[in-house]
Every structure is written in structure tokens, then in C-alpha cells.
Design a binder for these strands. Structure first.
Lengths: 117, 117
DNA sequence: CTTCAGCCTGGAGTGCGCTCCAGGTCAAGC
DNA sequence: GCTTGACCTGGAGCGCACTCCAGGCTGAAG
């Protein structure tokens, strides 16, 4: 059980972002105190860690939401979820290759300045 | 000498983006025909290749513009330009490490589904 | 000389992912 | 019981990087 600020700290998302993620249905309905304040569970935190992974690797929010909806539909969507993640992983591999290629290009440019000095 | 559409094709930027880059001062003033249509030089293309590299590695436009302005100021800014590129390269290295870490995490998640099948 | 695809301009609009705000409520510590 | 910092809501606003549009001009091919 985590207070909102604690969940924010642990997940690395801002409080506003956590509320936003709930509002758009990325996070399922978060538990509340009788007074209406959010209480995050370990399960919620697990989702947030996953969202951080997907977001850091460039998955658009719409697709994360799709994944979350599939998960909420139950066990029978696991093949779809797996396929979704595998398509994403393939895109990430491509992205890593591009990044490395452009990094080399950048290093080459820097060497130009080194020779100049 | 390249027509706008040819410059777009070769650089991978859209025509609108090329005009936008000129408008905001990322690209210096591009040559024109007597009638006012753009004519891109090999030098322009060189800049576009660099912008693609920097953009693909996540440099914000404001910083690319800073680099371009330094270059237009002349030789004496080369140390600044080099420093700018080196700071950027360091950020790219960090980005590559993060991407790889999160990719591993993603693969781990996929293995979970593989074991499920 | 005509045609018509390609190009021009200034400015408005888009999509994404937050981020901020006003005006109030909640709850832990004294 | 009171204080005060954390939290609530709905909705507006923002920053980035384009992207699109209307209405008009250009220039190579036939």
C-alpha cells in the first residue's frame, strides 16, 4: 500500500501522470481511502514498472492501453499480448540499430573536430 | 543542385519539414531560382544528413539550431561546437544503455508468455 | 503557347503526452 | 480540535515538431 507521492517516487512518474494514466484507462481503477484518496498496491506498482519499460522503449500510450485492456479481459488474451510485445520488441531492435548507426556517425563528426584541434 | 522534392527524397524529410527548418533558421537561407523556387546544394544536403543524425539521436531542435548558428558564426566557434556534440554523445550513450536495459526487461516479460504457452 | 505538376507563402491546425490550475477536501501530528 | 501539507476533481494550457491548407506562381514538356 503506497500513498500517491510514494507511488510517484517509486515509479518515477509524476503525480499528475499517475492520475492521467488512471483517467485514460491505462491503469485500472486505483483503490481509495474512505475519503477518496488513492492507495496504490504492489500490483499497481508492477504495472507502472511495465509502463516505464514500454514508454522508455518508445511505445505509444494507445498501444500500452491496448495491452492493459487485453490483460484485464483475462487469460484468453495472452497470445495477443505476447504478439503485441514481440512486435514491439522487433521495433525496439530496429531502433537500437538506428541509434547505434547514428551514434557512430556522431562520433565520426566529433573526430573531425578532434583532428582540427 | 537539387529540386525541393529531390532534397526531400534524399534527406528523408518532408517538403514541409524542409521549409520549416529553413523558416526557423536551422537551415540557412536556401538558394532560389529567379522565380523564387528553392534549389538545394550539396552543402544543404550535408546539413540535412547531420540534422537527421542529431534528430534520430534525440537532440531537440533548439539545440540543433544553436549548433547551426555557431557554425555560421565561423571557425572560432569550433571548440563550442565540439563541446556541444560531445555533451550530446554522452546523453546518447546514456540513452543506449537505458534502451538496452529496458529491452532486456521487455524480453524477460516475453519469456514469461513463452513459458505460459 | 498551353498545360499542369510542382512549388510558393503565411498562418492555422494536429497529435502526443503530459502539466498546471482553482477551488476545495482529507488525515496525520500536535 | 486544529493545523497544514498532501491530496482531490474537471478542465484548460503547454511544448514540441511538425503537417496541412488556401490561394496563387513557376517552369519544363509537348
Amino acid at each position: 500500500m503506497y500513498a500517491p507521492s510514494e507511488a510517484a517516487r517509486r515509479s518515477g512518474f509524476s503525480l499528475d501522470t499517475l492520475r492521467y494514466y488512471e483517467k485514460i484507462g491505462l491503469l485500472g481503477a486505483v483503490d481509495r481511502t474512505p475519503g477518496g484518496q488513492r492507495v496504490f498496491t504492489d500490483d499497481d506498482l508492477g504495472w507502472l514498472v511495465l509502463f516505464r519499460c514500454l514508454r522508455d522503449t518508445g511505445m505509444p500510450i494507445a498501444e500500452m492501453r491496448r495491452y492493459a485492456e487485453l490483460a484485464r479481459e483475462g487469460e484468453h488474451t495472452s497470445a495477443d499480448r505476447r504478439a503485441l510485445l514481440e512486435r514491439h520488441a522487433a521495433r525496439v531492435e530496429e531502433q537500437m540499430r538506428l541509434l547505434e548507426r547514428q551514434y557512430d556517425h556522431l562520433r565520426e563528426k566529433i573526430r573531425f573536430y578532434e583532428r582540427l584541434a
